[in-house]
Design a protein around this nucleic acid. Structure first.
Lengths: 185, 185
DNA sequence: GTCTATAAGGCGATAGAC
DNA sequence: GTCTATCGCCTTATAGAC
């Protein structure tokens, strides 16, 4: 998708029209303004993405859930497009409130899902995580988003792996023994 | 700065000229093309930023170094501008190789600095980190970059704290006992 | 080194024929 | 619902006076 490569100000009706094989006025018929266009795109994107996350079987072992969650990230990394939400988030100044809401909901959904996964892992492993599950979830998700950006910049898909490994390790047998923030022995 | 708010395609010579109080042709005299303009901006930005990182006293305790490193991130979060490098990284498609190099060097500098900090912390605390220091450094840096984007989107400066806490906890007394990637008990 | 003036083309958006 | 044609404005960039 054009927006995922170039951002809100980096594509035009003309670009889109040429790619789809119609005239710009036809696109204006369906999406009067560019904001309408982007809102429709991000609505569909986030709905599809959210469904995919919800489709992960929560009765699976936590490490299997983590693998399922990470698969699309790993598959996307290093291509010429990044996450639509990550892209539009940097263009937030140009976007209407309606789009802001969709972007925020996207972050919240992923962070909530990851938080639950980390809480489950914490309970199963009976080990405390270094920081609260919600904070770790936010950090992991941010690392993944940035990972896509960096993987594209470096032309190196494996650049996403640091973020993926952080999640994998967090749901695995790793954690601090006992107290979370206390001093070491 | 205009670019840090709006990105490469989100500002024009006119915007800049009005803000500086000159005519667009005067800016063209100093920076013939827009690429020249952005290259000069990011060069100065990254040089200043790199100096600030290098100025952190490496003989300080690791947690004090982490605090010093995080201070500017916390101060920036929630404002209307994000990191120039984070912004331009999403606009990479439009930027020349020369700018790509500067952006990559920026990532490498921060990741290298954080890797060294985490290695030092690991040695001092005599605890292994859950994932290799370099991977954790990349994840932390990505979480911080994304943290600025998200803090701005949500209008919530405290959104950066998850990433900051991950670094703080990582240099503190928290880590896995013994083996890093082994299975749990 | 900054100005006025202007070029040449892209932009989002609209009117009206078909 | 897609087309042609066009509007008014903005864009990067240049030429030449001062």
């Amino acid at each position: 998708m054009l927006v995922r490569q170039r951002g809100f100000n980096g594509f035009s009706y003309r670009d889109l029209a040429e790619r789809v094989g119609v005239k710009t006025s036809s696109i204006h018929y369906h999406f009067p303004s560019k904001e309408d266009l982007v809102q429709a795109a991000v609505t569909e994107y986030s709905a599809r993405n959210a469904q995919r996350v919800r489709d992960i079987d929560t009765s699976l072992p936590v490490d299997a859930q983590a693998r399922a969650y990470l698969a699309p990230w790993l598959a996307t990394a290093g291509g010429d497009a990044i996450c639509l939400v990550g892209m539009l988030s940097t263009d937030a100044v140009f976007l209407p409130e309606a789009v802001h809401r969709i972007l925020k909901d996207f972050y919240r959904l992923h962070e909530t899902w990851l938080t639950r996964l980390l809480e489950t892992a914490q309970a199963v492993r009976q080990k405390a995580l270094p920081i609260p599950p919600q904070a770790l979830a936010q950090a992991v998700f941010g690392a993944l988003q940035s990972g896509l950006v960096v993987a594209r910049l470096f032309g190196a898909p494996q650049r996403i792996e640091a973020a993926a490994d952080l999640l994998t390790a967090s749901v695995s047998a790793w954690a601090a023994p006992g107290r979370v923030t206390g001093p070491g022995p």
